[in-house]
Simulated assay, not measured.
Amino acid sequence: MNVVETDEADGFFDVVAGTERSQAATMVLSPGQSTGGPENRHPEADQWCYVADGTGVAVVDGEECRLTSGTLVCIEAGEAHEIRNDGDERDGDDGGPLRTVSVYAPPVY
């Protein structure tokens, strides 16, 4: 059994655990920060992205999905994707980090 505490993740992207069949990573995006884009794909792996805290937007193959705490998005193998924190530090509640935990199956990184 592996147990990983992700509450204190503060690095942009950290692989925190893995086996031969899957892998877990944390990601923290500051307001206005994004990752990925039209060319970002994992040809052989699904990515399950869980929003632990914050808000943002996922764009998967051109379709937008609002992200809030508790949202779980499956980005299937081969789908282009971008995750972004659309908050603005000047907007009060929307100024915090977007914290996610992703599981890749099979491992990507």
Rank of each mutant, 00 (worst) to 15 (best):
T68K: 07
G54F: 02
D94I: 03
P31W: 02
R21I: 11
E8F: 09
V28C: 07
S22L: 12
S102Q: 14
M27P: 03
T68Q: 10
N85R: 00
I75H: 10
Q33W: 06
N85H: 03
V60S: 02
T71F: 11
L29N: 03
V108G: 04
T19W: 06
E76Q: 13
F13H: 14
A17N: 05
M27S: 14
S34T: 12
G56K: 02
G70E: 04
G37P: 07
A25E: 10
S30R: 15
A17E: 03
C49E: 11
M1L: 12
E8Q: 14
A80K: 06
E64H: 06
V108E: 11
E20G: 13
T55S: 13
L67A: 10
R21W: 09
M27N: 06
R90C: 13
S34R: 10
L98W: 00
W48D: 11
G70V: 04
P107N: 09
E76I: 07
G56Y: 00
L29P: 01
D46T: 06
P107S: 12
P97R: 02
E76M: 12
P43A: 12
G54L: 02
D46A: 07
A80D: 04
G92E: 10
G11V: 11
G78W: 02
E64G: 04
E89V: 15
D7N: 06
C65T: 14
T35A: 07
Q33E: 15
E8C: 05
D61K: 01
E8K: 07
E82V: 08
Q47V: 11
N2R: 14
P107M: 10
S34M: 12
H42Q: 09
E76N: 13
W48Y: 15
D46K: 05
R84D: 01
E76G: 13
A58C: 07
R21A: 15
S69K: 11
A17Y: 00
G36A: 09
S34V: 08
R41D: 09
L72T: 06
G36K: 03
D14W: 00
A9I: 02
V103R: 04
V59F: 01
L98I: 02
D88V: 08
V59L: 09
